[in-house]
């Protein structure tokens, strides 16, 4: 069995986001970029399935500029067998990404596609669902536990839903998107970083995959959330009441 994992290169989780002065997007110049944390969890789960003997190969896919190779190298250092880099200079919205992943899936024929439930940069939470729909495969989103049954050819997935946990059983091939509590991703060890250097990364373009990249969504403006005003210390109850009455107008 082959597992395909989509990994996205995003502004590091710990970096404070700055909006570009011209409001066209988020500033990514000289900013630390890393693998989307949910994608890391997706890859970790795929690797565990492989290590448990249920899969033979884990293939990591990343779509974006040339530096996505670094993200793929991280994935290879974690243990993925090979990488596919769909190089593009423009940034795509989920539907285009889903179309690209679909055509890769048609070439690679994986039995499982793992994605993070969402990327921490645009927080769309759409790609996994769209890939499943385009392929006509079952989907299990927000997975917090994944158990494979090789003989019956099904995956049993616990999902984190508002009311608690929901357990689904999906036939393979399927799309699974991963939630935070599924696992704790491993670190990239030196011996594995060394091994990763010789693992292949296949370059592809959108044209190779014959995907229509025209988007019907246009981003008008990106702005920062309004700044929170700093609090004030009041020195007496009277002052507090005065402020509540005359400034906050709540009493």
């Amino acid at each position: 069995m082959k597992i395909l994992v989509a990994v996205k290169r995003v502004v590091d989780y710990a970096v404070k986001i700055r909006v570009k002065p011209d409001k066209t997007g988020v500033d990514t110049q000289n900013v630390k970029m890393s693998m989307n944390p949910f994608c890391e969890i997706a890859l970790e789960e795929a690797l565990r399935i492989k290590e448990a003997g249920f899969a033979k190969e884990v293939v990591a896919v990343s779509i974006g500029p040339s530096q996505c190779v670094d993200t793929l190298r991280t994935g290879l250092a974690m243990g993925a067998d090979r990488g596919i880099h769909v190089e593009t200079s423009s940034s795509f919205l989920p539907l285009t990404i889903a179309k690209i992943l679909k055509s890769i899936a048609e070439v690679e024929n994986p039995e499982l596609i793992f994605l993070g439930k969402q990327a921490i940069d645009d927080d769309c939470n759409q790609t996994g669902q769209m890939v499943a729909a385009l392929l006509g495969w079952p989907q299990a989103t927000f997975a917090s536990k994944v158990v494979l049954d090789k003989e019956k050819h099904v995956a049993t997935v616990d999902r984190e839903v508002d009311g608690g946990l929901e357990t689904l059983c999906v036939d393979l091939p399927a799309v699974i998107t991963t939630d935070l509590r599924l696992n704790q991703p491993r670190y990239a060890s030196l011996p594995n970083i060394m091994k990763a250097k010789s693992k292949p990364i296949k370059k592809m373009t959108v044209q190779d995959l014959k995907v229509d990249i025209k988007s019907d969504i246009e981003i008008l403006e990106v702005t920062e959330p309004p700044k929170r005003k700093s609090g004030v210390m009041v020195s007496s109850v009277d002052e507090l009441i005065e402020k509540l009455r005359n400034e906050a107008h709540v009493v």
Binding site: Y13, A14, S34, Y187, S189, L190
Partner: peptide
């Protein structure tokens, strides 16, 4: 060095 890891993101570094 007998083993080691390199932080892949700031979270790991922390």
């Amino acid at each position: 060095v007998s083993d080691g890891v390199i932080a892949q993101d700031i979270n790991q570094a922390s």
